[in-house]
Design a protein around this nucleic acid. Structure first.
Length: 208
DNA sequence: CCACGGATTGGCT
DNA sequence: GCCAATCCGTGGA
């Protein structure tokens, strides 16, 4: 596939919610040697350590979260539940502690490689296709993203995001975030309406 | 379809 | 020691 231009630093250093919504529809690309794996971003969540108790940065800088305090445009990868990695796009200015969790992608290139990474085989059925990247830890498994990708520069060659035309405003839905126990009412999950690759629904509470 | 629990490391109280 | 920005399998309605 012919990739369009990569998003540059100035895209990422803006307001975390603007960046989050505008990431929808863009192409997340992973290059491993000559191989390309990519997918359209269809679901994200914003985290803002200045006012958000669910953000890893809410209680200040530690070894684990230091990348999230960098200036926007890096990848913040964290390890959780003893077995999963999740990746975020760092946004805003230095020392703000803001980032956007990638929750779901629509697979585009390298689907065979994603299938191998996720299920150990190339041939997958319809259900497994939907299951490739419809969750934050599934994305990392499919895209071979682990702790060694923490801090990767998104304006570099290994992991980057390609521009795409903006979505119509009525294509972007908002909800509360999934899987957290603090700041549960903040409506900071954004996803593409009716996209089949969006992950599960949020709990029936809070604002939509 | 939904609810629940187990897996299993590591960060922080 | 507690518990997490998850996932998957199981079991019941």
């Amino acid at each position: 596939m012919k990739h369009k231009t990569r998003l540059q630093k100035s895209f990422y250093t803006r307001n975390v919610h603007a960046v989050a919504k505008e990431l929808l529809g863009k192409l997340f690309v992973r290059r491993i040697d000559r191989e390309i794996i990519s997918g359209i971003i269809v679901e994200v969540e914003a985290y803002d350590g200045s006012i958000d108790e669910a953000a890893h940065t809410f209680r200040g800088k530690t070894k684990r979260n230091e990348v999230m305090f960098e200036e926007g445009g890096l990848l913040y990868v964290y390890f959780t539940y003893g077995m999963h990695f999740c990746c975020n796009v760092v946004a805003g200015k230095a020392n703000e502690g803001k980032a956007i969790l990638l929750r779901a992608l629509e697979p585009v290139e390298g689907i065979d490689r994603m299938a191998l990474n996720r299920f150990g085989k190339k041939d997958i059925n319809e259900k497994q296709l939907i299951n490739l990247t419809n969750g934050p830890a599934k994305i990392c498994e499919a895209f071979q993203i682990t702790r060694s990708e923490n801090g990767a520069d998104l304006t570099g060659e290994e992991i980057f995001i390609c521009d795409a035309p903006p979505l119509a405003k009525n294509q972007v839905e908002t909800s509360v975030r999934i899987g957290i126990k603090k700041s549960v009412d903040l409506p900071w999950r954004y996803y593409i309406k009716d996209n089949p690759f969006v992950s599960g629904k949020p709990p029936l509470r809070g604002k939509k």
